[in-house]
Design a protein around this nucleic acid. Sequence first.
DNA 1: CCGCCATTGTTATTTTATAACATAATCGGA
DNA 2: TCCGATTATGTTATAAAATAACAATGGCGG
Lengths: 126, 126
Amino acid sequence: MTPNETLVYNLLRQTDTPLSAYSILDALRDQGVRAPLQVYRALNKLIERGAVHRIESINGFVACSLTNCGERAVSIFMLCTKCERAAEFTDPAIDQKIDALANARLFAADHKVIEMTGLCASCRDS
Amino acid sequence: MTPNETLVYNLLRQTDTPLSAYSILDALRDQGVRAPLQVYRALNKLIERGAVHRIESINGFVACSLTNCGERAVSIFMLCTKCERAAEFTDPAIDQKIDALANARLFAADHKVIEMTGLCASCRDS
DNA sequence: CCGCCATTGTTATTTTATAACATAATCGGA
DNA sequence: TCCGATTATGTTATAAAATAACAATGGCGG
Protein backbone atom coordinates (compact mmCIF):
# COMPACT_ATOMS: atom_id res chain seq x y z
CA MET A 1 0.00 0.00 0.00
CA THR A 2 1.47 3.35 -1.03
CA PRO A 3 1.71 6.25 1.44
CA ASN A 4 -1.29 8.06 0.02
CA GLU A 5 -3.36 4.92 0.00
CA THR A 6 -2.43 4.26 3.60
CA LEU A 7 -3.44 7.76 4.64
CA VAL A 8 -6.79 7.50 2.91
CA TYR A 9 -7.48 3.98 4.09
CA ASN A 10 -6.61 4.69 7.72
CA LEU A 11 -8.78 7.77 7.72
CA LEU A 12 -11.74 5.83 6.35
CA ARG A 13 -11.24 3.06 8.90
CA GLN A 14 -11.27 5.56 11.74
CA THR A 15 -14.42 7.27 10.51
CA ASP A 16 -17.84 5.78 11.11
CA THR A 17 -19.57 7.47 8.19
CA PRO A 18 -18.83 7.56 4.47
CA LEU A 19 -16.67 10.51 3.47
CA SER A 20 -16.61 12.50 0.27
CA ALA A 21 -13.35 12.67 -1.65
CA TYR A 22 -13.08 16.34 -0.79
CA SER A 23 -13.59 15.88 2.93
CA ILE A 24 -10.87 13.22 2.80
CA LEU A 25 -8.69 15.78 1.07
CA ASP A 26 -9.41 18.37 3.76
CA ALA A 27 -8.71 15.91 6.54
CA LEU A 28 -5.38 14.91 5.05
CA ARG A 29 -4.14 18.32 4.03
CA ASP A 30 -1.89 18.66 7.05
CA GLN A 31 -0.37 15.30 6.19
CA GLY A 32 0.74 16.45 2.78
CA VAL A 33 -2.22 15.63 0.56
CA ARG A 34 -2.96 18.67 -1.54
CA ALA A 35 -4.91 17.81 -4.65
CA PRO A 36 -8.14 15.93 -5.41
CA LEU A 37 -6.33 13.58 -7.75
CA GLN A 38 -4.15 12.26 -4.98
CA VAL A 39 -7.29 11.24 -3.14
CA TYR A 40 -9.10 9.87 -6.17
CA ARG A 41 -6.11 7.83 -7.23
CA ALA A 42 -5.79 6.29 -3.80
CA LEU A 43 -9.52 5.63 -3.63
CA ASN A 44 -9.56 3.93 -7.02
CA LYS A 45 -6.78 1.57 -6.06
CA LEU A 46 -8.42 0.79 -2.73
CA ILE A 47 -11.73 0.15 -4.46
CA GLU A 48 -10.09 -2.13 -7.02
CA ARG A 49 -8.68 -4.14 -4.16
CA GLY A 50 -12.03 -4.26 -2.35
CA ALA A 51 -10.74 -2.42 0.71
CA VAL A 52 -13.03 0.52 0.12
CA HIS A 53 -16.53 0.83 -1.30
CA ARG A 54 -18.03 3.69 -3.19
CA ILE A 55 -21.52 4.68 -2.11
CA GLU A 56 -23.29 5.83 -5.25
CA SER A 57 -26.30 7.39 -3.55
CA ILE A 58 -24.24 9.95 -1.69
CA ASN A 59 -20.99 10.21 -3.63
CA GLY A 60 -19.16 8.89 -0.60
CA PHE A 61 -16.48 6.35 0.23
CA VAL A 62 -16.30 3.94 3.13
CA ALA A 63 -13.85 1.29 4.29
CA CYS A 64 -15.12 -2.23 3.89
CA SER A 65 -16.30 -3.63 7.21
CA LEU A 66 -16.55 -7.27 6.18
CA THR A 67 -14.04 -10.08 6.14
CA ASN A 68 -13.70 -11.91 2.84
CA CYS A 69 -15.76 -9.22 1.22
CA GLY A 70 -16.92 -10.06 -2.26
CA GLU A 71 -16.53 -13.78 -1.81
CA ARG A 72 -20.00 -14.34 -0.54
CA ALA A 73 -22.00 -11.74 -2.39
CA VAL A 74 -22.32 -8.10 -3.33
CA SER A 75 -22.41 -5.67 -0.43
CA ILE A 76 -25.73 -4.12 0.54
CA PHE A 77 -25.63 -0.73 2.24
CA MET A 78 -28.15 0.84 4.58
CA LEU A 79 -27.50 4.57 4.77
CA CYS A 80 -29.02 6.58 7.59
CA THR A 81 -29.97 10.08 6.47
CA LYS A 82 -29.84 11.33 10.06
CA CYS A 83 -26.64 10.02 11.65
CA GLU A 84 -25.16 9.39 8.18
CA ARG A 85 -23.73 6.04 9.18
CA ALA A 86 -23.46 3.25 6.66
CA ALA A 87 -24.13 -0.37 7.56
CA GLU A 88 -22.77 -3.02 5.24
CA PHE A 89 -24.22 -6.50 4.79
CA THR A 90 -24.26 -9.33 2.36
CA ASP A 91 -27.10 -11.67 1.56
CA PRO A 92 -26.24 -14.56 -0.73
CA ALA A 93 -29.89 -15.24 -1.51
CA ILE A 94 -30.48 -11.71 -2.75
CA ASP A 95 -27.27 -11.80 -4.73
CA GLN A 96 -28.28 -15.05 -6.39
CA LYS A 97 -31.68 -13.70 -7.31
CA ILE A 98 -30.13 -10.64 -8.90
CA ASP A 99 -27.72 -12.80 -10.84
CA ALA A 100 -30.60 -14.97 -11.97
CA LEU A 101 -32.47 -11.92 -13.17
CA ALA A 102 -29.42 -10.79 -15.14
CA ASN A 103 -28.84 -14.26 -16.57
CA ALA A 104 -32.45 -14.53 -17.65
CA ARG A 105 -31.95 -11.35 -19.67
CA LEU A 106 -28.52 -12.44 -20.96
CA PHE A 107 -27.00 -9.46 -19.20
CA ALA A 108 -23.34 -9.87 -18.19
CA ALA A 109 -23.07 -7.86 -14.98
CA ASP A 110 -19.68 -6.76 -13.82
CA HIS A 111 -20.78 -4.47 -11.04
CA LYS A 112 -23.83 -4.45 -8.81
CA VAL A 113 -25.12 -1.69 -6.55
CA ILE A 114 -27.63 -2.22 -3.77
CA GLU A 115 -28.21 0.70 -1.45
CA MET A 116 -31.00 1.87 0.81
CA THR A 117 -31.43 5.27 2.39
CA GLY A 118 -33.63 5.84 5.44
CA LEU A 119 -33.40 5.86 9.20
CA CYS A 120 -31.33 3.41 11.19
CA ALA A 121 -32.61 1.65 14.29
CA SER A 122 -31.35 4.26 16.74
CA CYS A 123 -32.34 7.31 14.70
CA ARG A 124 -35.89 6.20 13.93
CA ASP A 125 -36.75 6.19 17.64
CA SER A 126 -35.42 9.60 18.60
CA MET B 1 -47.30 18.98 -15.99
CA THR B 2 -45.62 22.36 -16.48
CA PRO B 3 -44.05 23.37 -19.82
CA ASN B 4 -40.50 22.66 -18.67
CA GLU B 5 -41.50 19.32 -17.22
CA THR B 6 -43.19 18.41 -20.47
CA LEU B 7 -40.11 19.30 -22.49
CA VAL B 8 -37.84 17.24 -20.26
CA TYR B 9 -40.21 14.32 -20.02
CA ASN B 10 -40.85 14.12 -23.75
CA LEU B 11 -37.15 14.25 -24.48
CA LEU B 12 -36.46 11.40 -22.06
CA ARG B 13 -39.27 9.32 -23.54
CA GLN B 14 -37.84 9.75 -27.01
CA THR B 15 -34.33 8.79 -25.95
CA ASP B 16 -33.35 5.19 -25.43
CA THR B 17 -30.48 5.86 -23.03
CA PRO B 18 -30.28 7.74 -19.74
CA LEU B 19 -29.30 11.38 -20.20
CA SER B 20 -27.32 13.66 -17.96
CA ALA B 21 -28.96 16.86 -16.77
CA TYR B 22 -26.57 18.85 -18.90
CA SER B 23 -27.20 16.91 -22.08
CA ILE B 24 -30.90 17.47 -21.47
CA LEU B 25 -30.11 21.15 -21.13
CA ASP B 26 -28.18 21.17 -24.40
CA ALA B 27 -30.93 19.33 -26.23
CA LEU B 28 -33.59 21.75 -25.04
CA ARG B 29 -31.69 24.98 -25.48
CA ASP B 30 -33.40 25.83 -28.74
CA GLN B 31 -36.73 25.33 -27.03
CA GLY B 32 -36.06 27.98 -24.45
CA VAL B 33 -34.37 26.07 -21.65
CA ARG B 34 -31.29 28.01 -20.67
CA ALA B 35 -30.13 27.13 -17.17
CA PRO B 36 -29.32 23.92 -15.32
CA LEU B 37 -31.83 24.72 -12.62
CA GLN B 38 -34.70 24.63 -15.05
CA VAL B 39 -33.73 21.08 -15.91
CA TYR B 40 -33.05 19.97 -12.34
CA ARG B 41 -36.32 21.41 -11.11
CA ALA B 42 -38.27 19.61 -13.80
CA LEU B 43 -36.38 16.38 -13.13
CA ASN B 44 -37.04 16.54 -9.41
CA LYS B 45 -40.75 16.94 -9.92
CA LEU B 46 -40.85 14.15 -12.45
CA ILE B 47 -38.91 11.90 -10.10
CA GLU B 48 -41.24 12.71 -7.19
CA ARG B 49 -44.13 11.62 -9.38
CA GLY B 50 -42.35 8.45 -10.46
CA ALA B 51 -42.33 9.41 -14.13
CA VAL B 52 -38.56 9.58 -14.25
CA HIS B 53 -35.85 7.62 -12.46
CA ARG B 54 -32.43 8.79 -11.47
CA ILE B 55 -29.62 6.34 -12.23
CA GLU B 56 -27.12 6.74 -9.43
CA SER B 57 -24.31 4.79 -11.05
CA ILE B 58 -24.02 7.15 -13.98
CA ASN B 59 -25.62 10.39 -12.78
CA GLY B 60 -28.25 10.00 -15.44
CA PHE B 61 -31.99 10.27 -15.81
CA VAL B 62 -34.39 8.04 -17.68
CA ALA B 63 -38.14 7.97 -18.24
CA CYS B 64 -39.89 5.15 -16.44
CA SER B 65 -40.74 2.35 -18.83
CA LEU B 66 -43.15 0.44 -16.60
CA THR B 67 -46.86 0.74 -16.00
CA ASN B 68 -47.90 1.11 -12.37
CA CYS B 69 -44.29 1.64 -11.46
CA GLY B 70 -43.59 1.51 -7.76
CA GLU B 71 -46.71 -0.46 -6.95
CA ARG B 72 -45.11 -3.83 -7.36
CA ALA B 73 -41.56 -3.23 -6.24
CA VAL B 74 -38.50 -1.09 -6.58
CA SER B 75 -37.08 -0.75 -10.07
CA ILE B 76 -33.95 -2.70 -10.96
CA PHE B 77 -31.76 -1.29 -13.70
CA MET B 78 -29.34 -3.08 -16.00
CA LEU B 79 -27.00 -0.55 -17.56
CA CYS B 80 -24.99 -1.49 -20.60
CA THR B 81 -21.58 0.15 -20.62
CA LYS B 82 -21.29 -0.28 -24.37
CA CYS B 83 -24.58 0.82 -25.92
CA GLU B 84 -25.45 2.77 -22.77
CA ARG B 85 -29.02 1.59 -22.77
CA ALA B 86 -30.88 1.07 -19.53
CA ALA B 87 -33.32 -1.79 -19.01
CA GLU B 88 -35.80 -1.47 -16.18
CA PHE B 89 -37.38 -4.39 -14.32
CA THR B 90 -39.08 -5.17 -11.08
CA ASP B 91 -38.89 -8.35 -9.09
CA PRO B 92 -41.24 -8.57 -6.12
CA ALA B 93 -39.28 -11.41 -4.56
CA ILE B 94 -36.05 -9.43 -4.52
CA ASP B 95 -37.86 -6.39 -3.20
CA GLN B 96 -39.37 -8.43 -0.38
CA LYS B 97 -36.03 -9.91 0.56
CA ILE B 98 -34.46 -6.47 0.73
CA ASP B 99 -37.32 -5.22 2.88
CA ALA B 100 -36.91 -8.21 5.14
CA LEU B 101 -33.22 -7.48 5.51
CA ALA B 102 -34.00 -3.88 6.45
CA ASN B 103 -36.73 -4.92 8.87
CA ALA B 104 -34.47 -7.41 10.55
CA ARG B 105 -32.06 -4.54 11.24
CA LEU B 106 -34.87 -2.15 12.24
CA PHE B 107 -33.91 0.06 9.35
CA ALA B 108 -36.73 2.23 7.95
CA ALA B 109 -35.91 2.47 4.26
CA ASP B 110 -37.47 5.25 2.23
CA HIS B 111 -35.48 4.77 -0.93
CA LYS B 112 -33.89 1.74 -2.52
CA VAL B 113 -31.37 1.56 -5.33
CA ILE B 114 -30.61 -1.58 -7.31
CA GLU B 115 -28.44 -1.15 -10.36
CA MET B 116 -26.14 -3.33 -12.39
CA THR B 117 -23.57 -2.27 -14.95
CA GLY B 118 -22.21 -4.63 -17.59
CA LEU B 119 -22.97 -5.75 -21.12
CA CYS B 120 -26.45 -6.27 -22.46
CA ALA B 121 -27.43 -9.30 -24.53
CA SER B 122 -26.71 -7.72 -27.90
CA CYS B 123 -23.45 -6.03 -26.88
CA ARG B 124 -21.89 -9.05 -25.20
CA ASP B 125 -21.93 -10.94 -28.47
CA SER B 126 -20.35 -8.36 -30.72
C1' DC C 1 25.01 3.02 -12.32
C1' DC C 2 21.34 3.45 -15.37
C1' DG C 3 16.97 2.98 -17.38
C1' DC C 4 12.31 1.45 -16.45
C1' DC C 5 7.96 1.92 -14.33
C1' DA C 6 4.92 2.89 -10.75
C1' DT C 7 3.87 6.65 -7.84
C1' DT C 8 3.42 11.32 -6.92
C1' DG C 9 2.72 16.23 -7.62
C1' DT C 10 0.58 20.29 -9.83
C1' DT C 11 -2.41 23.18 -12.65
C1' DA C 12 -6.30 23.55 -15.17
C1' DT C 13 -10.66 22.04 -16.68
C1' DT C 14 -14.87 19.45 -17.02
C1' DT C 15 -19.03 17.71 -15.12
C1' DT C 16 -22.72 17.69 -11.79
C1' DA C 17 -25.64 20.15 -8.62
C1' DT C 18 -27.38 23.88 -5.70
C1' DA C 19 -27.80 28.76 -3.51
C1' DA C 20 -29.76 33.10 -3.66
C1' DC C 21 -32.63 36.22 -5.44
C1' DA C 22 -35.92 38.39 -8.74
C1' DT C 23 -39.98 38.00 -11.59
C1' DA C 24 -44.18 36.21 -13.54
C1' DA C 25 -48.24 33.29 -13.64
C1' DT C 26 -52.13 30.95 -11.40
C1' DC C 27 -56.00 30.38 -8.56
C1' DG C 28 -59.19 30.47 -4.54
C1' DG C 29 -61.63 33.45 -1.60
C1' DA C 30 -63.02 38.26 0.46
C1' DT D 1 -62.91 42.04 -9.35
C1' DC D 2 -58.95 42.32 -6.78
C1' DC D 3 -56.02 40.62 -3.35
C1' DG D 4 -52.77 37.55 -1.57
C1' DA D 5 -50.76 33.25 -1.24
C1' DT D 6 -48.73 29.74 -3.66
C1' DT D 7 -46.41 27.79 -7.57
C1' DA D 8 -43.55 28.13 -11.52
C1' DT D 9 -39.90 30.53 -13.93
C1' DG D 10 -35.73 32.90 -15.00
C1' DT D 11 -30.93 34.41 -14.08
C1' DT D 12 -26.36 34.79 -12.09
C1' DA D 13 -23.19 32.93 -9.36
C1' DT D 14 -21.15 29.35 -6.86
C1' DA D 15 -20.32 24.88 -4.80
C1' DA D 16 -19.20 20.03 -5.17
C1' DA D 17 -17.44 16.03 -7.61
C1' DA D 18 -14.36 14.12 -10.96
C1' DT D 19 -10.93 13.99 -14.59
C1' DA D 20 -7.29 15.60 -18.21
C1' DA D 21 -2.71 16.58 -19.24
C1' DC D 22 1.78 16.86 -18.15
C1' DA D 23 6.05 17.11 -15.21
C1' DA D 24 8.89 15.18 -11.78
C1' DT D 25 10.35 11.84 -8.46
C1' DG D 26 12.01 7.63 -6.63
C1' DG D 27 12.93 2.97 -5.82
C1' DC D 28 14.52 -1.45 -8.01
C1' DG D 29 16.12 -4.90 -11.23
C1' DG D 30 19.58 -5.59 -14.53
